[in-house]
Write a protein that binds this DNA or RNA. Structure first.
Length: 381
RNA sequence: GCGCCGGUGGUAGAGCGGUCAAUUACGACGCGCUGUAGACGCGUUGCCUUCGGGCUACGGGGGUUCGAAUCCCUCCCGGCGCA
């Protein structure tokens, strides 16, 4: 069994981009890599064999959700997450830090972590979400499904993640809201930093590589401070979380500033960013892996990502188009089925339609990442 | 032929004298979604509009009433029962 490692094969002369390989006990990840999201130990609509066939190298599952059901203990008894879901390639688990936001202020304000239009809302220092209580020690959750109470702090998150046994696990952080004031951000950041150290102390095994998380919102000073502090801790890799400003250029710049501070020889993961138009910016700002729900989430809403942009397959016009979803795509779905057929399935709420879109989108995202690697290799990025 | 029940917007199906252009669901159309609570959420869905409102509508016709999708008469159509 190989242990964790990261090798940089090539550094771009034009940007911070690098071509690399992450080694894990369950195999290698060629980077930059896109990481599909498998929250409940499944990429929705697909089984593990199908996921692998679409070119996915690594998945990210969720500590909060898997702890609620079926529970870390059960999964451990099943032989760990890999055996449980029959996925023998690399796995990551998110720490539950995102749920601090998504089930907290995110739900309260009805917004995601990327804000395109101002909401007029702000979160002042010491404010608390409705269904989540954030304390210095950790976070008290209440499941939106059945009200189950769950406390997650750095120690709890690490315990659960070690029981799940992913190859890469993440420190427990607070993902702050994009509408938080800087005063709130400052305090949140200090919490995240304390928790990062506590996560390192809580580790019992080195079977899983532990990534520290840089926060700081859209504030350059906070981001840099966070990168210096987290980057100096003995994590095997690093992640950047939270929001990165309203526009893409800002995101690229902020990511780049963080990259410049983080230790160069360790891998970097961008948490929850990765629409197709973000890929190049992520790689150029020095990110090695990044996960995003976009391909799977949008597929279940009937949207295909293609080389010519998003296609809403619910639109009637696709019903009469007998060509492939994306004529330049090499995936089985595009090689087999027509837009017309897929549109028909989606419009009739047939799950097969959503499945086909999930497959295509995942292939598309994975191919996009492969293309990125090729460009770095050829000195084009 | 007699008796009973029923005919409402794209569909199903509420309403049963004013607050009804008509609840609701589905459908249709549009918008949103970036470490997934969510095969989801939001909006529009008779026609016209200077956005104040105006017009035409609840099988057809006629009546009662200040006022009818709602009550009465009649015709047409459907279901059930008896001949």
């Amino acid at each position: 069994m190989t242990s964790f490692g990261f090798k940089i094969l090539k550094r771009s002369k034009k940007s911070r981009a690098r071509l690399g390989v992450i080694s894990t006990p369950h195999g290698e990840i060629e980077t930059p890599a896109f990481v599909p999201v498998a929250t409940n130990a499944t990429v929705r609509m697909l089984d593990s064999t199908e996921i692998a066939a679409l070119g996915s190298q690594v998945l990210i599952c969720n500590t909060y959700h898997l702890h609620l059901a079926p529970g870390g203990k059960l999964i451990k008894k099943a032989g760990g997450l890999h055996a449980f879901m029959h996925w023998n390639k690399p796995l990551m688990t998110d720490s539950g830090g995102f749920q601090v936001y998504s089930l907290g202020f995110g739900t309260d304000h009805g917004i995601g972590k990327v804000l395109k239009t101002p909401t007029g809302k702000t979160i002042e220092r010491d404010a608390q979400p409705v269904n989540v209580r954030i304390t210095d020690e950790g976070v008290h959750f209440r499941s939106p499904i059945d009200g189950t109470a769950l406390f997650l702090g750095p120690k709890e998150s690490i315990r659960i993640q070690e029981a799940l046994g992913a190859d890469i696990i993440f420190a427990f952080d607070e993902c702050p809201s994009p509408v938080a004031t800087k005063a709130y951000m400052r305090e949140s950041l200090e919490k995240t930093h304390r928790w990062a150290k506590q996560c390192l102390e809580a580790r019992r095994s080195k079977l899983s590589a532990l990534y520290g998380i840089v926060q700081g919102g859209k504030h350059r000073d906070l981001r840099e401070e966070s990168a210096r502090l987290i980057g100096a801790l003995p994590f095997e890799g690093f992640a950047v979380g939270g929001e990165y400003g309203y526009d893409k250029p800002t995101m690229g710049k902020l990511m780049g500033w963080v990259s410049d501070i983080l230790p160069e020889e360790k891998p970097r993961h961008a948490l929850g960013i990765g629409h197709p138009e973000d890929f190049a910016a992520l790689a150029k700002s020095g990110m090695d892996t990044f996960d995003c729900i976009a391909p799977t989430h949008y597929a279940r809403r009937g949207v295909a990502f293609t080389s010519r942009g998003r296609l809403d397959m619910r639109a009637k016009r696709h019903l009469t188009e007998h060509k492939a979803l994306d004529q330049t795509c090499a995936c089985d779905v595009c090689g087999t089925y027509s837009r017309s057929y897929i549109s028909h399935l989606v419009r009739k709420n047939e799950l097969t339609g959503l499945k086909l879109l999930t497959m295509h989108n995942l292939h598309y995202f994975n191919a996009l990442a492969a293309h990125l690697r090729a460009k770095i290799k050829n000195g084009q990025l």
